[in-house]
Simulated assay, not measured.
Amino acid sequence: MKKLLSLLCALFAAIGLPGCDYLNVRELKPGVSTAAEVRERFGPPQMEWLNTDGSVTWEYSRQPEGAECYMITVGPDNILRQVDQVLNETQFARVQTGMSGDEVRRLLGRPAARQFFQLKRETVWEWLIERGSTIVDPTYFTVSFDEQGRVSGTGRYNKPKP
């Protein structure tokens, strides 16, 4: 049964569905699991962030359809240190005026969309943070950048379903 579940998760991952993330995260054990096990379960990261202590944080964003972004940190010994789902209120509060786009991406991962507004002369990045349901519309967290590429504000909105 476990082999069948692993096969299904691999199939879903291959076609871009994050349906097995919950199972993959549960089976990874900080201090025990290896970098190879992380890659086996999640595939290659979309971005690699080098940390000052020699560790590396791998980004696994499920945007634009998923409401998750996993930052998985592996030590220089290739042992898993931690798994964080970073699209949460604590991380949103860390986004500050004046930050660069790279600093924001390091906190929240790849956004679902980016849009430039000519009249306001600003760029807005957005992340899906709540998929919505038949009753509730999807919710997005937004970060606005000025002409110099620095954060000028944050917000959130609900996108009505078509």
Score class of each variant (00 low, 15 high):
Met1Gln: 00
Lys2Trp: 00
Lys3Gly: 00
Leu4Lys: 06
Ser6Cys: 05
Leu7Ala: 09
Leu7Arg: 09
Leu7Gly: 05
Cys9Trp: 07
Ala10Trp: 09
Leu11Trp: 13
Leu11Gly: 15
Ala13Met: 10
Ala13Tyr: 09
Ala13Lys: 14
Ile15Tyr: 14
Ile15Leu: 08
Gly16Tyr: 07
Gly16Cys: 03
Leu17Gln: 13
Pro18Phe: 11
Pro18Cys: 11
Cys20Tyr: 10
Leu23Gly: 15
Asn24His: 14
Asn24Val: 07
Val25Lys: 12
Val25Trp: 01
Val25Met: 02
Arg26His: 10
Pro30Phe: 03
Pro30Asn: 04
Ser33Leu: 01
Thr34Ile: 03
Thr34Leu: 00
Ala35His: 10
Ala35Phe: 09
Ala36His: 10
Val38Asn: 06
Glu40Val: 04
Phe42Gly: 07
Gln46Cys: 07
Gln46Asp: 08
Met47Ser: 11
Met47Pro: 00
Glu48Pro: 10
Glu48Leu: 07
Trp49Arg: 14
Leu50Phe: 11
Asn51Thr: 07
Asn51Glu: 12
Asn51Leu: 09
Thr52Asp: 14
Thr52Ser: 14
Asp53Arg: 04
Asp53Gly: 08
Gly54Pro: 10
Val56Trp: 01
Thr57Tyr: 03
Tyr60Leu: 00
Tyr60Pro: 10
Tyr60Trp: 02
Tyr60Ile: 02
Ser61Gln: 03
Arg62Tyr: 12
Gln63Trp: 01
Glu65His: 13
Glu65Arg: 11
Gly66Asp: 02
Ala67Cys: 11
Cys69Leu: 00
Met71Leu: 13
Ile72Asn: 08
Thr73Pro: 07
Gly75Thr: 03
Gly75Asp: 02
Asn78Gln: 14
Asn78Phe: 09
Arg81Cys: 07
Gln85His: 08
Gln85Ser: 12
Val86Gln: 00
Leu87Ser: 02
Leu87Val: 07
Asn88Ile: 01
Gln91Ala: 12
Gln91Cys: 08
Gln91Met: 11
Phe92Asn: 01
Phe92Gly: 07
Ala93Gly: 10
Ala93Tyr: 00
Val95Arg: 03
Gln96Val: 02
Gln96Trp: 00
Gly98Lys: 04
Gly101Tyr: 04
Glu103Ser: 12
Arg105Gly: 08
Arg106Phe: 09
Arg106Ile: 05
Arg106Gly: 10
Gly109Val: 07
Gly109Asp: 02
Gly109Gln: 01
Gly109Tyr: 05
Arg110Pro: 01
Ala112Leu: 00
Ala112Gly: 15
Arg114Asp: 02
Phe116His: 14
Gln118Trp: 09
Leu119Glu: 15
Arg121Phe: 01
Arg121Trp: 04
Glu122Gly: 03
Thr123Trp: 06
Thr123Val: 03
Val124Met: 07
Trp125Glu: 03
Ile129Phe: 03
Ile129Asp: 04
Glu130Ala: 12
Glu130Ile: 09
Glu130Arg: 14
Glu130Asn: 13
Glu130Gln: 14
Ser133Val: 07
Ile135Ala: 13
Ile135Ser: 12
Asp137Ala: 13
Tyr140Ser: 05
Tyr140Ile: 06
Thr142Cys: 04
Thr142His: 03
Ser144Asn: 10
Ser144Trp: 05
Phe145Ser: 04
Asp146Gln: 08
Asp146Pro: 14
Glu147Ser: 14
Glu147Asp: 09
Gln148Leu: 11
Gln148Gly: 12
Arg150Ile: 02
Arg150Met: 05
Gly155Pro: 08
Gly155Cys: 06
Gly155Asn: 06
Arg156Leu: 05
Asn158Gly: 09
Asn158Val: 10
Lys161Arg: 15
